[in-house]
Structure formats: C-alpha cells, structure tokens
C-alpha cells in the first residue's frame, strides 16, 4: 500500500473525532473548521477557559499547516501541491487532543526537531521568556514569526509537544505534531 498522511494517525480515533480534515488548507478551510469546532464546544457546554484554550491551540495548529507545510512530494495525490495537511481533534477524558500532519522538506527536519526538542526541555518560565524575546526582536515574515506558534501551543497547553517524523523519500518527510489541551 502506498503511503498516505493518514498512515501517521492510524492509532487515533478518526471516526469519533470532533474534527477530521485532510486536504489543502486555505483560509476558507480554516474559517470553516474553527466555526464548526466552536459550535461543538458550545454545544457540549465546555467551560469557557477550556473552550478558549482549545480554540487558540487549534488556530495555531491550523495556521502552522497554512504557513509551514512544504509542497507534497511528486506523485502524492493532492488537489494542489501546496498547503496540504491533515488535522484530527479528539475529545480525550476531560480535554482535547489536536494532531496535525503535513510534509516538510527533508532539509528542514533537523532544524524543526531541534526546535521542538528545545521547547520540550524548557520550563514554563523559559518558554515565556523565549516567546517574549522572539515577539520583541524578530521581524515578521510572510510565514509569520519563527517558532512563535509552537511556543504559544506549548505555553497554552503546559504539556510537552509530541512529534514524529516519517521519511517519505530522500527529499520529503511526513511530520506529525500533537498537542493536548487538558481541563484545568
């Protein structure tokens, strides 16, 4: 069987997910996904604090796909080669788990892995200081601010960010990122 991004989430409950989407991620897709999730969070009467955290983390997760997905490998089926990704949001216990998958160029894997490892090794106070430092000193680019989205996810969830890579070919790697927002 040929590789599909779905292979990276075979351990997740896609059928029971609050949100599942695979395809090109444009601004309209993000708006619709956020609207759908917000309605569901209101319908299930989640506490405002949890609802807001989940919404915030979902915004950053989806916009990470929008800004940072590299083109899909040649031969991989996608309507368009750019901004292609997958998102699963599941209810787990009293919180939510948000998982995104996308392709990254193989040359970017080391840098991304180092960035995430550094975040996971940092204390909440260090994450806060790193966030403020980037916010205050780094220029914004078309792709946003380097790593601020990941720091924001780490800060809002208070958990380590789970990530894994799977080599697709010599030029492309599939990347999975998972954040858990727990009831506080």
């Amino acid at each position: 069987m040929s590789f599909d991004l779905e292979n990276l989430v075979s351990d997740l409950d896609i059928r029971g997910a609050v949100l599942y989407y695979k395809g090109n991620v444009d601004s309209d897709t993000i708006t619709k996904a956020l609207d759908l999730v917000e309605k569901k969070l209101f319908a299930t009467r989640e506490a405002p604090r949890l609802r807001k955290k989940v919404y915030n983390v979902l915004v950053e997760s989806l916009q990470n796909l929008y800004h940072h997905s590299d083109k899909v490998p040649r031969g991989y089926h996608a309507a368009r080669p750019d901004r292609f990704g997958l998102v699963v949001m599941e209810k787990i216990g009293r919180g939510y788990r948000i998982t995104t998958c996308n392709f990254v160029a193989a040359v970017r894997v080391k840098e991304l892995e180092e960035k995430l490892t550094r975040i996971n090794r940092s204390t909440p106070e260090e994450i806060k200081e790193q966030y403020k430092d980037i916010l205050n000193h780094q220029e914004i680019t078309e792709k946003g601010l380097g790593g601020l989205g990941l720091l924001d996810i780490a800060r809002k969830t208070g958990h380590r960010i789970d990530f894994r890579f799977k080599k697709y070919d010599n030029l492309n790697t599939a990347f999975r990122l998972t954040a858990v927002v727990a009831q506080v």
Binding site: K52, Y55, N56, V59, E60, Q63, H67, L135, N136, Q138, I140, G144, L145, L148, G149, L151, D152
Partner: peptide, 12 residues
C-alpha cells in the same frame, strides 16, 4: 477575545 501569534507582532 482571541488573537493569533501572527497578530501578536502587529499589535506590538
């Protein structure tokens, strides 16, 4: 009510 990290720099 909400703002994303991309807005955070613009607000600054």
């Amino acid at each position: 009510e909400y703002f994303n990290t991309s807005s955070s720099k613009c607000i600054l």
